[in-house]
Amino acid sequence: MTTNATQGPDPEPNPHATEAEVEAALSDTKLAQVLYHDWEAETYDDKWSISYDERCIDYARGRFDAVAADQPLPYERAMELGCGTGFFLLNLMQSGIAKKGSVTDLSPGMVRVALRNAENLGLDVDGRVADAEKIPYEDNTFDLVVGHAVLHHIPDVEQALREVLRVLKPGGRFVFAGEPSTIGDFYARWISRATWAATTTVTKFGPLQSWRRPQEELDESSRAAALEAVVDIHTFDPDELAGIARRAGALQVDTATEELSAAMLGWPVRTFEAAVPAGKLGWGWAMFAFNGWKRLNWLDENVLRRVVPPKFFYNVVVTGTKP
């Protein structure tokens, strides 16, 4: 079945959801996706320490190569599903994965930021606001579809993968990375909650008050966190995710997992960064966080992977091809 690429103008971002909108979104996951990601769009790169330099280019390429190394490159045209600010596709394009790109997201705010980032980088990228379960592109359009931390937001993952396969050309490949494993998500959330509670409590007192964000910002973060609980729908066992991809019609399906000790550092670091005022943590902190992650990631890949079952690692990567 062919889907026509024509649709009306993309909606405008809504970066400041009201309490009434948030309340409505608690029972409407797609509305929650839009509100939450519009809310986060302009600060998302800073929140997650996303950049478009060698550090994140190497990271994105490493996620791709975990399941799709030694592919003929570059792909002619690639699409990112649930692009966010464009982190995965734009860094992959900079590494030579694809010549031309398209970014899609349910959030107008995220598409706007991703296109701005692409323009700043001089990359050939277009974009549309799109529902992953009904992608607004013709059959057989793309050579590659990628995504990072997107499948766990989609209500019907199998339907989304069917759509991915529809818009891929025959023999085209998809690569989705950064999906939370069921076990990994459990320990990451507990670590994050504990870090947030500890930081927001101790910064109430004495000289540490200068490290406390204004209460209205903390309240806004709490409302965003309430939405986050709605937008994070799934976690994945690697074998179960592979099964979903096969049922959608994919061939050559493979999965990989990554980050165990690195995730146990990364989640409290990111939560602490979100809980303190912007500007309090300088370049020294950033280098500590990045170098610490690199060392622990080396430990995960070279030691823990040999003795710990894959399902205990935090991130799942999945790939497959269109017949």
Rank of each mutant, 00 (worst) to 15 (best):
R189S: 12
F64Q: 10
D70R: 09
S210T: 09
P180L: 14
T195I: 01
K280A: 13
A118R: 08
P74C: 03
V67M: 13
A188Y: 11
S102R: 10
K322E: 05
A275M: 04
F312Y: 15
A32M: 07
Y187W: 10
L208D: 09
L227A: 01
T141G: 02
V67Q: 10
S27W: 09
P155R: 12
L251K: 15
R63M: 14
T199W: 08
N297M: 13
T235Y: 06
A194L: 15
V316W: 13
I97Q: 08
L208I: 03
G249E: 14
Y44P: 00
W298E: 14
G62S: 07
R189Q: 15
E42R: 12
L123W: 08
E76M: 09
A242E: 15
V276F: 09
V253M: 04
F88K: 01
P15K: 04
T255C: 06
S107F: 01
V317L: 14
H37M: 00
Q94C: 04
A25C: 07
A289L: 07
P238T: 05
L31F: 06
A262M: 05
G82Q: 00
A262E: 12
T3H: 12
V317R: 12
E21F: 04
E240G: 01
K169L: 03
H152G: 00
A78M: 13
K322H: 07
K47H: 15
M79I: 07
Y52D: 01
G8K: 09
R166M: 04
R112H: 07
A60K: 06
P207H: 10
K294P: 01
D124P: 02
L81N: 00
W267V: 10
L299Q: 06
T321F: 08
F288S: 06
H16V: 06
S51W: 04
H16Q: 13
G249F: 14
A286G: 13
R166H: 05
D10I: 06
G127F: 05
S210M: 11
G8M: 06
A78D: 08
A20W: 08
F290N: 15
T182M: 05
T6N: 11
R189N: 12
L281R: 07
D131E: 11
W298V: 02
V34H: 00
K47T: 05
L106V: 05
M110G: 02
T321N: 12
E216I: 06
L123S: 06
V145F: 12
E138K: 03
T3Q: 14
D70W: 10
S107I: 01
F186K: 10
L31A: 11
R223Y: 05
G8I: 03
E273W: 11
E76P: 01
K204P: 00
E19M: 06
D143F: 04
D143L: 05
V303P: 00
V129I: 10
S49V: 08
V125H: 07
N297Y: 12
